[in-house]
Amino acid sequence: MSNTLRKEINTGAEEHDGETENNVKKPKKPKKRLFSQKQKDMASGYLFISPFYLLFAVFGVFPILFSFYLAFFRWDGLGEMEFVGLNNFNIIFNDPLFWKSLYNTIIIGLMGTAPQLIAALLLAFALNSVLIKYKSVFRLAVFLPYVTSIVAVAIIFSVIFSNQESGLVNSFLGVFGIDPITWTRSEWGAKVAISAMIFWRWVGYNTIIYLAGMQAIPNDLYEAAKIDGATLRQQIWHITIPMLKPFIIFTVFTATIGALQIFAEPHIFQGRGGRPEGISIVLYLYREAFGSNFFGTASATAIVLFFIIIVFSAANLLLVNRIGRSGKVGEK
């Protein structure tokens, strides 16, 4: 690599007398060039960034604008498009299944992420403890589920939570005399199974992120706190948590947005069309579009989802800010 570079420098620098070992020669006045450096930078700058904008024009801007447009039309994908005003929104807002999908998404999101993030925080504390050896082994073990694809996780857990009496969870419950549960068809069974998938796959990922945050906290802070007589609990509340704030914000954000976009888990667990116990907003959208060919109502759903994500992100931001403020003492 460096050879080609040198060669290039050699050929490109006729005005130098061969001796190019030293790049920081006093700059000679460059020969008159066709284009100034400024023009060249402009040309290559725009050229280098253009692929993104071209792709985004075709697969980003246009589809997004067209989604907003399509939300006001009735269209089956083949025939004429018919302007229907706000009717598509009317239809989905009057569809109990839409509300059910919204409710499911929020409940499953809460059940799958809130306990998971707390567990990840506790795990990170444990892994960060000075008392522990073999940290990298434990770290590897909890991170391994993340390497498994979401589809694989959904399939594994579909079998673990199978409706049969011989299913793993059902036979385990049977030991305690609990009757087998039809997981895919029960209101809470489906939600528990789907939340378990989310929990298992992501807890290690979030643990590793918190751990990285904890390891970045300078030890002096703890030393100083200890000298001042702070207990372990005080250290956690006033040093660790406030210092972890950016990491907590990141994980809460990604977890929330990810939870609102859940699709593969219910789609695989309950079959292609979904079922009311587990259907999510994205699955509802998918079903409207590619199951029923109602592309207008599906686009309306996409737009509602977009605004829901904005609202949740804003709410998150407010909430996390407040949490940070209560830990003022540790903040600099």
Binding site: I64, S67, Q261, V282, L285, L305, F306, S313
Partner: peptide, 28 residues
């Protein structure tokens, strides 16, 4: 590289990260 509109073009790219991929799913 320095070129006119560099900052705004970059901010635009950051902005696109906020858009959920499902929004343009059907037209795409």
């Amino acid at each position: 590289l320095h070129f006119p509109g560099r900052t705004i073009l970059f901010v635009f790219i950051l902005g696109t990260m906020m858009i959920p991929p499902q929004l343009g799913l059907i037209p795409t």
